[in-house]
Design a binder for these strands. Structure first.
Lengths: 206, 206
DNA sequence: GTCTATACTGAGATAGAC
DNA sequence: GTCTATCTCAGTATAGAC
């Protein structure tokens, strides 16, 4: 990789982590990196593609570790599905460990979410991983109907996103994983389609 | 309210719902509304303030209904805390009903979240409501330690945010409320601070 | 008080010379 | 591959008409 490209990537990662994606202009990046503005578009095409490369460069090893942990967990319990605690751990712990080693990465991710770039980046970088983990979770809660399960996956994504960028994104990420896992396990294992509020007087009245 | 101001608000709400906040330029709004660019800054001061007024105009009655439902629920169960199912319903149902009547509002909210404007808008518009509901929830799960509870509130916010803007934001919002309530109740009532994965072989190995 | 016309600054993107 | 110059479009600010 050319020296120019490397400098752009490193500088962009630092500034995105410090200020967020939208708040960081290409002109600031190229000034700090000491390169020319057009070099960004030559090497990356656009600001969004630059962000994409910043993310994937760090996310790739995390995702590899996630899949490795999931593989082991599935092999260990085969032919039964692994308990969803383990599935969630396999997803969350590699990210948390990366966060301890490289504080900047998780901050970039948090900033992406806060900047609303999540859907674009998420689909490009995490699609394959998500598919694997969602199907593992699916096998772990066989009693939950399909539609309910799909909703719960969506709720889980929201909870994870907030967990990552929430206030105090500095502190011990591994302890946060424990909190989050307990919460998600409770949510996924909750009884499905029970008329929870059938006798709810507040609701009946409306 | 002046006709110009009204036209700007209506047009902005429609375009924000259709395209999102960042993707909608002030120039597009004023072109569609048939007013002058400077009128926006005269009446609202900035694009962000315009969004703020678009949101509060619709959110105010929703929040009022939320608090009314919570009041009734608390009075009904006093001196005991209301079950968290009812608290969550009191929060979610008014928004869902508003969504059925005015599809555009919930789409604006979803777009705000997707655009990352959530923290700013949320604090300004929903702060008081959030305080009331969080303390009601707190009383509903007395066994959960404080720190764990605070995390769960954060996870809940994330799940709610995703639930609102998630794919299929068109369909029956009220059924979505039921799915979400069950998930959140499960998460909040999950056993706290249990070493879920203490014997997790995948984790022990690291 | 309201609104119009216009100018200012900074953003991302691009064409073309070297 | 790299860089200069330029383009378009954004949000914002101001002067002044009614």
């Amino acid at each position: 990789m050319s020296d120019t490209k490397q400098k752009i990537l490193d500088t962009a990662e630092r500034l995105f982590a410090e200020q967020g994606y939208s708040a960081t202009s290409l002109r600031q990046i190229i000034a700090d990196a000491g390169v020319n503005l057009a070099a960004v578009h030559y090497h990356f095409g656009s600001k969004e593609e630059l962000l994409h490369e910043v993310v994937t460069r760090k996310a790739a090893p995390v995702n590899a570790k996630r899949l490795a942990m999931l593989d082991r967990s599935e092999a260990l319990h085969a032919p039964d599905p692994p308990p969803i605690e383990e599935v969630l751990h396999a997803f969350l712990i590699p990210m948390a460990e990366s966060a301890e080693r490289n504080r900047q990465f998780v901050r970039v991710m948090g900033r992406i979410i806060a900047d609303g770039m999540l859907p674009t980046i998420l689909e490009k970088t995490f699609h394959d991983v998500l598919v694997r983990f969602v199907s593992a979770l699916r096998r772990g809660v066989p009693d939950v109907p399909d539609e309910e399960f799909r909703w719960r996956v969506l709720f889980m994504q929201g909870a994870m996103a907030h967990a990552m960028c929430g206030h105090g994104a500095e502190g011990y990420f591994l302890s946060r994983v424990e909190h989050l896992t307990r919460f998600l396990v409770g949510g996924f294992r909750a009884p499905a389609a029970q008329p929870v509020a059938a006798t709810d007087p507040v609701e009946v009245e409306r």
